[in-house]
């Protein structure tokens, strides 16, 4: 009886201590915005990366699943190859700097995406071609600051405002980062008229090559009911060795 009670008290105290410790650990001082943004830009990428991911595109009319393999190097080079479904297998996108090319194995053609199509959908997903070009270099186009504290979930809202003179789709991006390791939890994208155009939610934090990253993200555009794109990293290798000719047109056409 007494032992039990003592144990109960002990557990109670331990709980209180744990809660206080958590409260103390809560960062009183917000992190530096630029540092966080640089960290986020680099999160899925490092110097070079190889990833395998699954994408599920849901529209009011259909649901489509794709499997992709992607290589990146630095901020400016990326190659994405569709591995499934069979109908689209081998279809690839190469990004070098601001240029984007699609290779279409069915008709054996490589086509450069014109600037006027940059805001068009990438492979029928809710991602745009522009996302592939811009997403990994937010610090180039945006001023960032720590906007406000979030209590639930605990973290900080990072406010990104587009730099003057930059032409792009977003005027403002709000990113919620977690206290534990600055992982992105949510992103809200506001268009040039200040309207919330889409949200991204990150979860399923996993370890990939020694890094903790959210493996799953859901992109929901606000203007189309029942429309969303989910992406889940299946494999992610950081600082991977990538052959020099990976990000070239000749390699693009051999990607099948």
């Amino acid at each position: 009886m007494t032992e039990n009670r003592q144990r109960g008290i002990f557990l109670g105290l331990a709980a209180i201590a744990a809660i206080s410790a958590a409260a103390l650990a809560q960062p009183a001082k917000p992190p530096d915005a630029e540092t966080v943004l640089a960290y986020l830009d680099d999160l899925y990428r490092s110097k070079s990366s190889i990833a395998r991911a699954e994408m599920i595109v849901t529209s009011p009319r259909s649901t489509r699943t794709m499997r992709l393999k992607a290589w990146t190097r630095g901020e400016d080079e990326a190659l994405i190859v569709v591995e499934a479904p069979a109908r689209e297998e081998g279809t690839s996108t190469l990004r070098v700097g601001p240029n984007l090319w699609n290779y279409l194995p069915r008709i054996a053609r490589t086509i450069r995406v014109p600037p006027s199509m940059m805001l068009g959908s990438w492979m029928g997903t809710d991602f745009t071609n522009d996302d592939l070009v811009k997403e990994s270099s937010l610090h180039k186009d945006f001023e960032s600051r720590i906007d406000r504290r979030s209590d639930s979930p605990p973290g900080w809202w990072l406010g990104l405002t587009v730099k003057p003179g930059i032409v792009g789709r977003w005027a403002r991006i709000d990113i919620l980062i977690s206290d534990d390791g600055w992982l992105p939890l949510q992103e809200h994208h506001f268009d040039r008229k200040g309207r919330l155009a889409r949200t991204m939610v990150f979860d399923e934090v996993r370890m990939f090559g020694g890094r903790r990253v959210p493996a799953h993200l859901v992109l929901t555009p606000t203007d189309v009911e029942g429309q969303r794109t989910e992406m889940r990293y299946l494999e992610l290798e950081f600082d991977a060795k990538i052959p020099d000719d990976t990000f070239s047109l000749s390699r693009l056409e051999r990607s099948r």
Binding site: V57, R64, L104, I107, R109, I111
Partner: peptide, 14 residues
């Protein structure tokens, strides 16, 4: 070459 998006979201190209 003509490339677009089918009504089901699939890649249209021919």
């Amino acid at each position: 070459a003509v490339v677009g998006q089918g009504v089901d979201g699939s890649l249209a190209n021919d």
